[in-house]
């Protein structure tokens, strides 16, 4: 191949590559569109939402649906409830997962493997199946309509234990032994040696648990009847089911639920995607 033909082939545009990029960009637009559309509709007045022909950008910018959703329908309250429940349950579940994962990976004890198989097997049980006895347990514990009824069951997760047990492999036993020789206690080794060595696994698990808690509908729907305790997911679902439809307010409520998570995703998308790919993820 002469230098001239080589240069020509470098300049030539491959039509297949163009088609590939075109398809991918159209697909990306289709994926982003519903969320963008929700964002745009949040700042449109009720009348503009249902007008024909539709407009993408709001013609007259208004905060009214957002304010109405936040105050009148108590979405502000629901948001705070969601934040409380998710904010307490998520770090606790990451901590218990790390602790149990550490013990099951680093120590030997009798019935260690059978117990682990039982934990794994519980992941196969479909969630809705245990809804009734779970309700009964909460009823007996006198915890109906409390934040605790949502937080406590989310504190231990079999998936998290399984994940952290895998990741604790990367903590060298020699390092723990060195710590032991220096006289560090076992809990100290867990907190100050093991945990600092697996920060990305902790973060990945934290993100997965955050999304699961933030998105949880079925369980809170069953145990919460007091509207003051509603989480965003429950508030949104019941608003859509019970009230005379006001799409502008409903859309603004959805915006309140989605916006903070999307912003967090945009900030940390590289780590989140790497974490998800790392874990194989459920869901």
């Amino acid at each position: 191949m002469t230098a001239a033909t080589a240069r020509r082939s470098r300049l030539r545009i491959d039509p297949r590559a163009v088609l590939l990029y075109l398809l991918l960009f159209i697909g990306a637009f289709a994926m982003l569109f519903p969320v963008l559309w929700m964002g745009m509709s949040t700042f449109k007045a009720e009348a503009e939402i249902s007008q024909y022909p539709p407009s993408f950008l709001p013609k007259t910018f208004t905060m009214e649906p957002l304010i109405a959703a936040w105050t009148k329908i108590k979405f502000g309250r629901y948001f705070m409830n969601s934040l409380l429940v998710t904010g307490v349950a998520t770090p606790l579940s990451v901590l218990t997962s790390a602790y149990l994962g550490f013990v099951w990976n680093k120590y030997d004890f009798r019935f260690k493997e059978p117990m682990f198989y039982v934990i794994i097997a519980t992941m196969m049980i479909p969630g809705p199946m245990l809804l009734i006895p779970h309700y009964q347990v909460v009823l007996w514990a006198n915890l109906l309509n409390t934040y605790a009824s949502i937080i406590v069951p989310a504190v231990v997760t079999p998936y998290g234990i399984f994940l952290m047990r895998q990741f604790m492999h990367s903590v060298p036993n020699e390092l723990l032994d060195a710590g032991r020789i220096d006289g560090a206690s076992e809990p100290r080794l867990f907190v100050f040696v093991a945990l600092p060595l697996v920060p990305s696994s902790l973060a990945a698990l934290g993100i997965i648990q955050f999304l699961a808690n933030w998105d949880n509908l079925l369980w809170p729907l069953v145990v919460l009847t007091n509207t003051a305790k509603y989480t965003l997911a429950v508030g949104l679902a019941t608003f859509a089911a019970e009230y005379e439809r006001n799409f502008a307010v409903q859309n603004a409520g959805a915006f309140i639920a989605v916006f903070p998570v999307v912003i967090a995703f945009l900030l940390f998308q590289r780590q989140i995607i790497r974490g998800i790919a790392l874990t194989g993820l459920k869901g």
Binding site: V35, D215, I272
Partner: peptide, 14 residues
């Protein structure tokens, strides 16, 4: 990946 991080109830309404 974006739709994955959006809350199911919220985007179902959207």
């Amino acid at each position: 990946f974006m739709p994955t991080v959006t809350g199911m109830v919220a985007v179902a309404l959207v």
